[in-house]
């Protein structure tokens, strides 16, 4: 298989996977009755209208087609309150992405850097200390850490301006400052995980023969670092996708609920609390599709970073 065929092959699998996931979710919810029709219309007066608005009485295959069409055209219907979900989702995602991109980048770079740094100094006190930090950082539930940070900031340091002001726009000084605390919690959490993998991966690579050959030829640290990074890049990238992405969303929801940030995580939480099916579906399905696309992008990146993959062998 050459590179082009390989990528087309992976693309087909991505599309099949996305289609399977969407269909699975549709079936699960199509076959379960929506409680909204009883909750919003207790007397039963508007149940027919509620059902008609959501197309519940149409035959299954028609609902399936319109569901798929809705996702493909970003027409996601409305929330229980009547706001368009696509707009709400876009607003919330903007808030989240504002701090998330920076946090993830910082956590990944710092995690890989520190992990590699300590791996090159085996049996040192530093290595042990870093190991301990990454173990403990991983072991504390995010919501406990976030609550702790929140109360230390408010009760002991007396910083009250750190709370997000919902009346003001996102890109105002106050709200950008308010994002620093949740961003910090997310960064530290991801850093601890990335550090763990980066360290063990680096230790693994540093034991290989070609590193010894490099040392024997009197190469400096910079050259060794470059070789380790090049060799570790693929597996660290796949760790990023398989482990970090799953964690990111969990951490997001917790942090945004505790710090009251009107982002993606809070939207999902609100959907669960208000039992708003539209919001829950949009906030869970899109990330799933996004991760699948991300996986495909990762495959493309692999073929560029690591030429061995092109041959088709893993």
């Amino acid at each position: 298989m050459n590179r082009k065929q390989y990528l087309v092959y992976r693309l087909v699998w991505t599309v099949v996977g996305a289609w399977g996931a969407l269909s699975g979710i549709f079936l699960a919810f199509a076959l379960a009755p929506d409680p909204g029709q009883y909750k919003i219309c207790p007397g039963g007066g508007c149940r027919a209208a509620y059902r008609a608005a959501r197309n519940y009485d149409a035959p299954l295959h028609e609902r399936y087609l319109s569901w798929m069409e809705g996702f493909l055209t970003f027409d996601l219907g409305t929330t229980v309150r009547g706001e368009p979900i696509a707009g709400v989702l876009a607003d919330a995602s903007t808030v989240t992405l504002t701090y998330l991109v920076l946090s993830v980048a910082l956590a990944v770079i710092a995690g890989v850097g520190v992990g590699l740094f300590v791996a090159m100094r085996p049996d040192s006190k530093l290595l042990r200390a870093v190991r301990a930090v990454s173990y403990v950082g991983f072991a504390i539930p995010t919501f406990v850490a976030a609550l702790g940070v929140f109360f230390v900031a408010v009760e002991y340091l007396g910083i009250y301006t750190l709370e997000y002001d919902h009346e003001q726009a996102l890109f105002t000084a106050r709200n950008l400052v308010a994002l620093t605390l949740p961003a910090g919690v997310v960064t530290v959490n991801l850093f601890a995980i990335q550090l763990r993998y980066a360290r063990s991966e680096s230790v693994d690579i540093l034991q290989r023969d070609f590193i010894r050959a490099l040392h024997a030829r009197g190469m400096g640290t910079a050259v060794v670092v470059r070789h380790v990074l090049k060799n570790g890049a693929t597996s660290l990238l796949s760790v990023f996708f398989s482990e970090l992405v799953g964690v990111v969303f969990v951490v997001l929801v917790v942090v945004e609920v505790i710090f009251d940030i009107p982002g993606f995580g809070q939207l999902l939480y609100r959907g669960i609390q208000q039992r708003d099916l539209g919001i829950i579906l949009a906030t869970t399905t899109f990330p799933i599709l996004l991760v699948m696309v991300g996986n495909f992008v990762q495959d493309v990146a692999y073929t560029i970073i690591d030429p061995r993959i092109e041959s088709g062998a893993e």
């Binding site: 099949v16 996977g17 799953g246 669960i272 829950i280 990330p287 799933i288 991300g294 996986n295």
Partner: peptide, 17 residues
């Protein structure tokens, strides 16, 4: 591959709902 790209967290939320 596909299964790993679906975060269990979301499946749990959807399933609980």
């Amino acid at each position: 591959d596909i299964q790993q790209s679906i975060p269990a967290f979301f499946v749990i939320i959807l399933a609980q709902e």
